[in-house]
């Protein structure tokens, strides 16, 4: 049985004439990493801020862990952990003080282990204003996790992080997911969403355009699979060879690149052809359309409309 922890129904928020979030609905199940994707200004942050209690929606309802907060978040502060896209701490607050400060308000013991895990051990006595952007975001994440919330909101969590920190964060997200934490992730980094999210919703101009697993979304498009082939001989050099389901092809360096609507059939026919020509295969790569390709396809189509 599914255990829905976030239920959003026709959520709406407008700033004057600008409708930032336009009657969106979605559910998130326990233990999911739910990615909210969209370009800048799509309404991701506003959606999160409504759910976090930072903004009052103009319409719609939502429930977190089965409870409707009704803008009284005092009972839900222990339920949600939030890493805001733009937030700050007092300049003179030290890293260990920040942990003690917020842990005390959550009535939990300070989680120095999180600071260590996120590479902040050496920075315990450092004041906030002297931390780099990446370290500030890591601290923000540590503070969001300090009270072990069942629902975690991450708004552009890897912005400003180096590669190593990104990998560490993604590993942490997976671990949290495995331990039952539900993560809502707002990002415009498609690779991150494809790698980490179990389900995603693409948001454009305040509306959800599509929802599904990253695989479902990439598979639903008209995207062509890219097949790159390199052979020892010259069997593929002959122009006008027609392989099944190939719509276009090009040559690049020593590779022949085919774009196929049915990669299985195309690869079979290529291998069969090479074998027939007594040639040898050196390299063959099949690249499915990425979430980014599909995202661009969807958003470009909508923007043109």
């Amino acid at each position: 049985m599914k255990d829905t922890v976030v239920e959003v129904n026709k959520l709406r928020k407008a700033y004057g004439d600008l409708v930032a979030v336009d009657d969106i609905s979605f559910n998130v199940e326990k233990g999911e990493i739910f990615g909210l994707l969209g370009p800048n200004g799509a309404g991701k942050t506003t959606t999160f801020e409504c759910l976090e209690g930072l903004r009052k929606p103009d319409g719609g309802t939502f429930k977190l862990m089965g409870e409707s907060p009704n803008y009284n978040y005092s009972n839900l502060r222990s339920t949600i952990g939030v890493q805001l896209q733009t937030s700050g701490l007092p300049d003179s607050m030290r890293v260990d003080e920040a942990m003690n400060f917020f842990s005390a308000y959550h009535n939990v013991t300070s989680r120095y282990d999180l600071l260590e895990r996120l590479g902040l051990r050496e920075k315990m006595g450092t004041q906030y204003h002297t931390l780099s952007t990446g370290l500030k975001r890591r601290l923000s994440l540590a503070l969001a996790l300090a009270h072990n919330p069942p629902i975690l909101f991450l708004d552009e969590p890897t912005a400003g992080l180096d590669v190593q920190s990104r990998v560490e964060l993604h590993n942490m997200m997976k671990e949290l997911q495995e331990s039952g934490t539900t993560i809502l992730l707002a990002t415009h980094d498609m690779a991150e969403a494809e790698k980490t999210a179990t389900r995603v919703a693409i948001l454009l101009r305040g509306k959800i355009i599509t929802t599904g697993t990253p695989h479902e979304i990439t598979a639903s498009g008209a995207g062509l699979t890219k097949i790159s082939v390199r052979v020892e001989g010259s069997s593929l050099s002959i122009p006008n060879i027609i392989f099944s389901n190939v719509t276009q092809y090009l040559s690049k360096d020593e590779y022949k690149i085919y774009f196929s609507t049915n990669p299985g059939k195309t690869v079979s026919s290529i291998i069969e052809y090479i074998s027939r020509q007594k040639d040898s295969l050196i390299d063959l790569r099949v690249e499915r359309p990425s979430l980014e390709d599909r995202f661009l396809e969807i958003t470009n189509k909508k923007v043109r409309k």
Binding site: R77, S78, S87, P90, F102, H106, L143
Partner: peptide, 16 residues
């Protein structure tokens, strides 16, 4: 300045 820098937002979501 704290309000402008979003410090109070951090406080709010952490129950201050």
């Amino acid at each position: 300045k704290s309000r402008e820098a979003g410090i109070f937002r951090s406080y709010k979501i952490n129950g201050v």
